[in-house]
Write a protein that binds this DNA or RNA. Structure first.
Lengths: 345, 345
DNA sequence: TCGTTTTTCTAGATCGATTTAGAAGAACGA
DNA sequence: TCGTTCTTCTAAATCGATCTAGAAAAACGA
């Protein structure tokens, strides 16, 4: 049973190993009759086809692309935004008969997961919301593995598919400024705050490039407003809730809360409900992404074409016909009932 | 830059390739000084560590487990049940420094995706809701790859982690029978119905073992009831909605609808709302899984410990300390407001 | 019929590491 | 000082395929 290789089959049929290999990979290189005889014998011997590792070694193709996340996989899956991205990426991967290798990077232990990146048999990598400067990125670079990021990088050689974060946030900021908001709290993802008490951060401490850009966009478009940055941990509903609780229960209540993801905003919504606050009237709430739930609860948000993002990343990684290496996708401000004029003081 | 291998480094340092290999894999086999010299030189040369494919070939370990799905990945990700399973599995995978290779199997084209299974570099496989007899399972078997299924298989040698589907469904069935329901429609996942009009199926046409068992469980506990099986396609909210629309708009309305997953039931709920039907009063609705949304909408359902399921599968696949090969997890009937007495005729 | 092209198949090198068995030298005990 | 044990390192085989270049046989054209 074990130990049946190309060679075994070749010997049994009475041909060379090369021919057996061709039977699997280049059917037009040998006669139909022989090919069938080979395949039949292989089946009889219980040969399961060319070994994946050996093929990968010799041909230099692993048949898989890595998807790099920070945080636990669990968080990734619970965010519909990530799910949408993966769905788009998977669509293209399927087209190219390629599998997706999920590679969670620990964000608390900065080197965690790097080992997996070091050893993974992948042809390319999608970098999903990994903060710039993460050691895993350097490893990819060293290994010469083409990578596409979901954030605009600073290196001109880096490939990315992103949205104009600054501009997208500015759209939202203008909307809020027009409504008269001057006291704004921004809810961000931050590993340090995970599990514990919410923390207030400075712009420099944010880490993720995309978050940073969004905040800058808000600042730019709301020059008269005071922006505070608060994090309750990972990107999850519970974090948003914790952050909002902290902010709403303090003396220094804002007139608007902006989640840098809809998931964060949904958490804040929960905290508001408990306190009897109606979004859009007592307090303005906004998010980013426009996940399905956002529409259901009437959340004002900035829509980004997330599935297209996944698809585009897939195309750059796998489709040789795609030459574009850097892609800016459009966003759209979706105004719903959760935003309203700032209450007069 | 390219073409830097163990050998290159060995030559540069002036030692044998074996020693360089040991520097990476068996640090105690060489002096500290030499090891550091090797690592430093490797870094200088831009050597990114042992090649994954070569290592996999020689050592026989791929460092990844495959996760086999039917349907498009997109569907998998949009079902919180699948997400919970993956989260549990990922938790264990992380512990064993192993990656997850997602392998979607096309369910319409029965051989679709089999190629990926044939070629994937994996040490083990988790079989997530794949109907018995799928060619991919035979391929795994041929390749001698250990696999754990989320369904109880019929082969005593097969490993699985499952719930007692029959018993779980019987619990729900008893509940419905006690409420006086005699006209029941069961909503199932079925690839053939995808995209098109909902279809009525016989028990034999269902395909998935778990679904079949659940229906049998309902039949057993509701001997007086007429059960119809309807499918609107893949396991998704939209399918449940389509199925329910079909059923609700027909002459032959049931008094209860049972989704074989909460996702199906949620779809049916949408269809009911549009028609002004209140669950629990006008029509009883129930599901399976107890995903988070089920609680939010008050859906009666059968809870199964999905994350534990993922964890258990992971342990069987990766943890040598785990000897149990077949595991039955407990379920619990959760009665909420969506189920009520059958209206008198 | 003979040279040419096409089809069909093969030998042998190669991908990049790990592993086994063992050599060389250092340390040690008596 | 001599044999023994440890430590440190190496030579060569090996994992299982694919690839390149080319040989042998068959088909073809004139």
């Amino acid at each position: 049973m074990a130990g049946v290789t190309l060679k075994t089959v070749a010997k049994a049929v009475g041909v060379s190993p090369s021919t057996v290999s061709n039977a699997y990979n280049k059917p037009d290189q040998l006669s139909v009759a022989l090919r069938e005889r080979i395949l039949a014998t292989a089946h009889e011997l219980g040969y399961a086809g060319p070994d994946a590792a050996a093929r990968a070694l010799r041909s230099g193709k692993a048949g898989a692309v890595g998807v790099l996340f920070t945080d636990k996989l669990a968080y990734a899956f619970s965010d519909p935004y990530a799910v949408g991205f993966l769905a788009g990426l998977a669509e293209v991967a399927e087209e190219f008969a390629t599998s997706l290798l999920l590679m969670p990077l620990s964000s608390t232990d900065i080197t965690g997961g790097s080992n997996a990146v070091q050893q993974a048999a992948i042809d390319a990598a999608a970098i999903f919301c990994v903060p710039g400067g993460h050691p895993a990125l350097e490893i990819l670079d060293n290994r010469g593995i083409p990578a596409v990021s979901t954030d605009r990088g600073d290196h001109p050689s880096l490939s990315w598919v992103a949205i104009d974060e600054l501009e997208a946030a500015a759209q939202l900021g203008e909307h809020l400024a027009r409504l008269g908001h001057k006291e704004v709290v921004v809810l961000v993802d931050n590993a340090q705050a995970a599990g514990g008490r919410p923390v207030e951060l400075t712009l420099d401490e944010v880490g993720y490039t995309d978050c940073e850009l969004r905040i800058r966009g808000l600042q730019k478009s709301m020059p008269d407003a005071r922006l505070r940055i608060v994090s309750g941990g990972h990107n999850a509903i519970a974090s948003g809730r914790r952050s909002a609780e902290y902010v709403l229960d303090s003396q220094d209540r804002p007139t608007a809360i902006v989640g840098l993801s809809d998931v964060q905003a949904l958490g804040a919504l929960e905290a508001m409900k408990v306190r009897g606050l109606t979004p859009g009237r007592d307090l303005t709430l906004a998010g980013f992404d426009d996940i399905p739930a956002a529409e259901a609860v009437g959340l004002t948000t900035v829509r980004q074409p997330i599935k297209d993002k996944g698809r585009a990343v897939g195309r750059i990684l796998l489709d040789p016909a795609t030459t574009e290496r850097q892609l800016l996708l459009p966003t759209q401000l979706i105004v719903r009932s959760s935003s309203g004029p700032a209450p007069k003081r």
